[in-house]
Design a protein around this nucleic acid. Structure first.
Length: 323
DNA sequence: CCAAATGATTTCCG
DNA sequence: CGGAAATCATTTGG
């Protein structure tokens, strides 16, 4: 249930309580495979751990306790001043009303917070958003300038993550996907590879000789497949500040348990961090534009047979960047 | 609407 | 645990 059900109506929680809502959408639609287990487990952790550990007295109990406490006080006071039964009655009414309203507020905010968290975790997990143009740009630049060993260190990953406004896991995912897909069909990526190789060459050239205004690259020597030599700088990144907080490691909601309030506070805290970071896109460090011509240095990319030349003459796989 | 592209997840391996 | 490979689920472009 959504909380230690106090018998009172829990209208906002729906008929059953929150858990139905909270677990909705976790089920795999195919149903055949039992994948998605991690997500489910995590969601279960989020949802299922309402005070099964300590069970610190239900709100109704607390209300009764407090009521008797007040009654005792009144009884003591009745020795020094006359107290009408009416007054006691009124007091009890006030207490009960107050308690139930507090309960309601707590329930409401807890449910709200959990719902928001749910959508953050699940929707953001299953709903995919493509990275921004600039992020892809940065990642590709790194990939193709480290083509001989496209395995960024943890540090490099962090830096890339910061520059791209994505998480480190996303960077890892990206490189995993990229490596596999590149290796699988190198031909398909030739154009891209050339483009980024040339681009890094251009940036290097700019860094070296910023003063010289030559829009002539130094002889790419590649039988380029069509694309003219001009590399227009891609500016048109829409870049909606995506809120990428809640990176995969900050699930520190995993030990609630104190009381509802702290739970709510914790949740609020987490939720309030949705600001999204400002990235420092712009200042790019030069990634040591090693131009290693060895194709497929990593992982015996022996390119058995099919990778001859799908679209164009293989000739020089990588243009000699720099001099 | 379909197919390709793409980010994320799962499974397996060393 | 990090990576490869397969696969899933969504987005994008035609």
């Amino acid at each position: 249930p959504c909380l230690p059900s106090t018998g009172a109506s829990a209208a906002w929680c729906g008929p059953g309580s929150g858990s139905a809502l909270l677990t909705r959408g976790l089920t795999d639609k195919g149903g055949a495979t039992s994948s998605r287990s991690h997500a489910q487990a995590r969601a279960r952790v989020l949802v299922g751990q309402h005070r099964t550990v300590s069970e610190p007295l239900l709100p109704s109990q607390a209300c009764n306790e407090f009521t008797t406490h007040v009654m005792n006080l009144l009884r003591e006071q009745s020795r020094t001043r006359p107290i009408s039964p009416k007054e006691i009655e009124r007091m009890v009414g006030i207490i009960h009303r107050k308690f139930s309203s507090i309960q309601m507020q707590l329930k409401q905010s807890t449910c709200e917070a959990v719902m928001i968290l749910r959508s953050r975790f699940l929707d953001a997990r299953r709903k995919r958003r493509n990275f921004s143009k600039q992020a892809t740009e940065i990642l590709n630049e790194y990939f193709y300038s480290h083509l001989s060993n496209p395995y960024p260190s943890e540090e490099a990953k962090e830096e890339l993550a910061k520059k791209c406004s994505i998480t480190v896991s996303q960077v890892s995912n990206w490189f995993g996907n990229k490596r596999i897909r590149y290796k699988k069909n190198i031909g398909k990526f030739q154009e891209e590879a050339n483009l980024y190789a040339a681009k890094t060459a251009v940036t290097a050239a700019h860094a070296v000789a910023a003063a010289v205004q030559n829009n002539q690259t130094n002889s790419p020597t590649t039988p380029n497949s069509g694309s003219s030599g001009s590399f227009n700088l891609p500016n048109s990144g829409d870049m909606f500040m995506n809120m990428q907080s809640l990176n995969g490691d900050s699930y520190q909601g995993s030990q609630v348990g104190a009381n509802v309030q702290s739970q709510v506070d914790t949740l609020r805290h987490v939720i309030n961090q949705t600001g999204g970071y400002n990235d420092g896109l712009g200042g790019n460090s030069l990634y040591s534009p090693h131009n290693l011509n060895a194709n497929g240095g990593w992982q015996d990319a022996t390119t058995p047979s099919s990778v001859t030349s799908p679209t164009e003459g293989p000739g020089s796989v990588h243009s000699d960047t720099s001099n």
